[in-house]
Amino acid sequence: MLRMLVRGAAGGALATVALTAVSLAGDQAGVMRDRPSGRVVPGPPPRHVRHRARPSESLAHFGFGVASGAVFCALSRGRANLPLGIGYALAAWAASQRGWVPRIGILPPDTRDDSCRAAVLAAGHVLYGTVLVATVNHLTRP
């Protein structure tokens, strides 16, 4: 069980880096008003400057991704497949974007948010699920 959690955590770490890269690319392309991966801790960004993630926000986002990977691996019992991984990641995104994220004031629900940001975040979570499954499967090989 411990090995499974470690594999999932490693997959979650790599997947979070990939998801963050998609968010950064969306930001550089000008389709994100501010990076939500840098807004995991509630509170408005400064109005006079573009929001930059505080270390605590980045660590919280990374920790959430790592923990989510470990949970996924435990739930799937190490038998990850691509549809399951992508579904898991999109379910986590939907639950966050329609649940705790708007409740604590990080972002509005995706139904009222900018459609470009929602698309970038959905794509990032598809990549998260893909990288998670690929990593877990690679680490599970004999």
Rank of each mutant, 00 (worst) to 15 (best):
G78A: 08
V136T: 08
P46D: 15
R141C: 02
Y88K: 02
V40H: 07
G78S: 01
A60T: 13
V6M: 09
R112M: 13
F72A: 03
L19M: 13
R77N: 11
A13G: 01
A94C: 07
W93F: 13
G65L: 05
D110M: 10
A53P: 00
R98D: 11
G12L: 03
I106Q: 14
R52N: 12
F62S: 02
L2E: 03
Q97E: 15
A15E: 00
A91F: 12
G78L: 06
V17L: 14
R141T: 05
S115V: 11
A60Q: 05
V136G: 03
S68I: 01
A25S: 09
I104P: 03
L19I: 01
L84N: 04
T130L: 09
T135C: 06
H48P: 00
D110F: 11
G129C: 06
A15N: 00
D34V: 05
G124T: 00
R7E: 00
L132S: 01
A94I: 08
A89V: 04
R54A: 14
S76D: 09
L132M: 11
N137P: 01
A92H: 11
A21Q: 04
S56V: 15
Y128A: 04
A122W: 06
D110C: 08
I104V: 15
T111Q: 14
S115T: 10
R103K: 10
R77D: 05
A21E: 05
G11S: 10
T20V: 13
G129R: 02
G129D: 02
R77I: 06
A29E: 02
R117K: 12
S68Q: 07
R52V: 13
M1Q: 14
A123Y: 08
V131A: 02
I106W: 06
V22L: 14
L2N: 08
R52S: 13
S37T: 06
R117M: 09
A10R: 05
M4D: 10
A134S: 11
S96N: 12
L121Y: 10
S96Y: 12
Y128C: 07
A67S: 10
R52Q: 14
R52F: 13
G12S: 04
Y128S: 04
A91N: 06
P46C: 13
A67D: 02
V49W: 12
D113R: 13
Y88N: 01
L5S: 08
R35S: 12
V41E: 05
P83E: 08
N81E: 12
R7K: 07
M4L: 15
N137L: 05
S76V: 10
R77S: 12
